[in-house]
């Protein structure tokens, strides 16, 4: 049986309690995947930068905003906070040209900090490196499929 696929891009998140796959493609961005196995709720976000610095809107572009909203949305869709486990992906060092050198690494760190503050264990990770990743979470069993880019 094939389930339908929801694709998210940067500055978005998606949470579902129906059988579905959520997919995104990451470079230096990070996606946090959350999973509640008792209630079968799965969610994924995709953020570009670690911290909102008070400029502009506090949008899903920023890890500290996006992760908290992802958790809120999980709970709204029926997840229970102490069931949640996290898997984190992305945060590669992609762009030689950017002046913000370690943005990938900082994106990973902020996920670790916030998730540990929230007492959500990180049960799997595939982070860093220099390649892009395609990440798909299934809300049937919470498993995450990751494919690494050729370039």
């Amino acid at each position: 049986m094939s389930v339908s696929l929801k694709i998210i891009v940067q500055e978005q998140l998606y949470v579902t309690n129906e059988p579905l796959e959520i997919m995104t493609v990451l470079g230096s961005c990070v996606a946090v995947c959350l999973w509640d196995s008792k209630n079968c709720v799965a969610g994924m976000n995709h953020y570009l930068l670690p911290l909102w610095n008070g400029e502009g809107f506090k949008s899903l572009k920023y890890g500290n905003i996006s992760i908290l909203k992802l958790v809120d949305e999980m709970i709204l869709k029926g997840a229970v906070k102490h069931n949640l486990v996290a898997k984190i992906f992305g945060g590669a060092s992609i762009n030689l040209a950017k002046t913000t050198f370690c943005v990938g690494e900082q994106n990973i760190r902020i996920a670790e900090h916030i998730l540990s503050d929230l007492k959500i264990p990180i049960v799997a990770r595939d982070v860093g490196g220099t390649k892009g990743r395609k990440v798909v979470i299934s809300s049937i069993d919470g498993s995450v499929y990751v494919k690494t880019s050729m370039n």
């Binding site: 891009v9 940067q10 995104t24 493609v25 990451l26 470079g27 230096s28 961005c29 570009l48 898997k87 992906f89 992609i94 762009n95 799997a124 990770r125 595939d126 390649k131 892009g132 395609k134 498993s143 995450v144 499929y145 990751v146 494919k147 690494t148 880019s149 050729m150 370039n151």
Partner: peptide, 18 residues
């Protein structure tokens, strides 16, 4: 500029499961 994902190439081989 707004994202960093547009230029990746993925080939049809098995990825890994987490």
């Amino acid at each position: 500029t707004s994202g960093d994902t547009s230029s990746f190439v993925f080939e049809d081989e098995e990825g890994s499961r987490f």
